[in-house]
Amino acid sequence: ENVVSAPMPGKVLRVLVRVGDRVRVGQGLLVLEAMKMENEIPSPRDGVVKRILVKEGEIVDTGQPKIELG
């Protein structure tokens, strides 16, 4: 899985990584606000952040790609 998608609709509060960052499985990639709760979205695997496809403040839909890992 190279693309991390939104598990639920919500607002991107914070992006916790930058392009080029090495990430580990379970590491937080971003914080999504859904139903007035903050949810940290974890990396599904070890890898390197290739692209960030969302911006802080953006509203995302379920299944929308957010971060691409290499």
Rank of each mutant, 00 (worst) to 15 (best):
K36N: 15
R14G: 06
G20N: 07
E33S: 07
L53P: 00
G47D: 02
I52Y: 00
G28M: 11
E33R: 03
E58W: 08
V4E: 03
E58Q: 13
V12M: 01
M37T: 12
S43F: 02
G70N: 12
P42E: 08
R51A: 12
P9W: 11
D61G: 12
E56L: 10
P7W: 10
G57S: 04
R18A: 12
L30P: 01
P42H: 10
E58C: 07
R24F: 12
G70K: 12
P7Y: 09
G63I: 05
G10R: 00
R14A: 09
G28L: 14
E33M: 10
V19T: 07
L53C: 11
T62D: 07
I41G: 01
R24L: 11
E58P: 02
K66W: 15
V60K: 01
L29N: 01
R22Q: 12
D21F: 08
E40C: 15
G47V: 03
P9E: 06
T62W: 10
A6V: 08
R24Q: 12
I41P: 03
A6H: 04
E58F: 05
L16C: 11
V49R: 01
V12K: 01
L32K: 00
R45E: 05
D46V: 07
V4Q: 04
P44K: 04
V25N: 09
R22M: 13
D46W: 07
K50W: 06
M8R: 08
G57I: 05
N39I: 15
L29P: 00
G26M: 05
K66I: 15
P7R: 11
R24H: 12
E1G: 13
R18V: 12
S5Y: 15
V31Q: 01
D21W: 04
L30D: 01
E1S: 14
G57K: 03
M37S: 11
I41T: 03
T62M: 14
L13M: 07
S5A: 11
G57T: 04
N2E: 11
K11Y: 07
K55T: 12
V48L: 09
E68S: 07
E1R: 11
L13C: 09
P7T: 13
E40S: 09
G47C: 05
M8F: 15
G28E: 05
K66D: 07
R45W: 13
K55G: 08
V19Y: 03
I52L: 06
G26W: 06
V54N: 02
V60Y: 05
I59A: 09
K11I: 11
I67Y: 03
L32P: 00
V48A: 04
L53R: 04
D21L: 07
R45P: 01
M35I: 08
A34M: 11
V19G: 01
T62S: 13
K55P: 01
R45S: 11
L32H: 00
V23E: 01
E56C: 07
I67M: 10
V49E: 02
R18C: 12
L29D: 01
G47F: 01
V49H: 00
V54E: 01
L13E: 06
G28C: 14
P44H: 09
E40Y: 12
K36E: 14
E56T: 09
N2T: 15
I67G: 02
V48D: 04
L30W: 02
V19F: 03
V54T: 05
L16E: 03
D61L: 13
D46K: 07
V12A: 00
V12D: 01
E58R: 01
D61I: 14
S5I: 13
M8D: 00
L29Y: 00
A6R: 03
L13D: 06
M8E: 05
V48I: 13
P9M: 09
R51Q: 09
G26I: 05
P65D: 08
G10K: 03
M8A: 09
V17I: 08
T62I: 13
G63R: 07
K66F: 15
P7G: 14
V54L: 03
V4N: 03
E33H: 06
G10M: 04
L69H: 00
K50P: 00
I52P: 01
G20K: 03
P44V: 05
K50A: 10
R51V: 09
G70R: 13
P44E: 05
I41R: 00
N2Q: 11
G28S: 12
V12H: 02
E56Q: 10
Q64W: 08
I52M: 03
I41Y: 05
R45N: 08
V19C: 09
K36H: 14
Q27W: 01
D21N: 05
G10A: 06
G63F: 09
E40H: 10
E58D: 15
R22D: 10
S5L: 13
L16R: 04
R24M: 11
V19E: 11
T62Y: 12
G70I: 14
L30T: 04
T62Q: 13
V3C: 13
K36T: 11
G70M: 14
R45A: 11
E56I: 13
R45Q: 10
K55E: 11
M35W: 09
N2C: 15
L32F: 11
G28P: 15
M37P: 03
P9C: 09
E58L: 04
I41W: 05
V4M: 05
V3R: 06
K11D: 03
V4T: 04
A34C: 14
K50Q: 10
V12S: 00
R18E: 13
L16A: 03
D21A: 07
Q27C: 07
K50E: 09
G10Q: 05
K36M: 14
Q64A: 09
K50R: 12
A34I: 14
L13A: 05
V25P: 08
G47L: 02
V25S: 11
V23G: 01
V23R: 00
E38S: 08
G20L: 05
K55H: 12
V4D: 03
V60M: 04
G70F: 14
R24S: 12
N2I: 15
V15C: 09
V25Q: 13
V60I: 08
E38N: 08
V54P: 02
E56Y: 06
V48E: 07
V49K: 02
M35S: 11
M8Q: 08
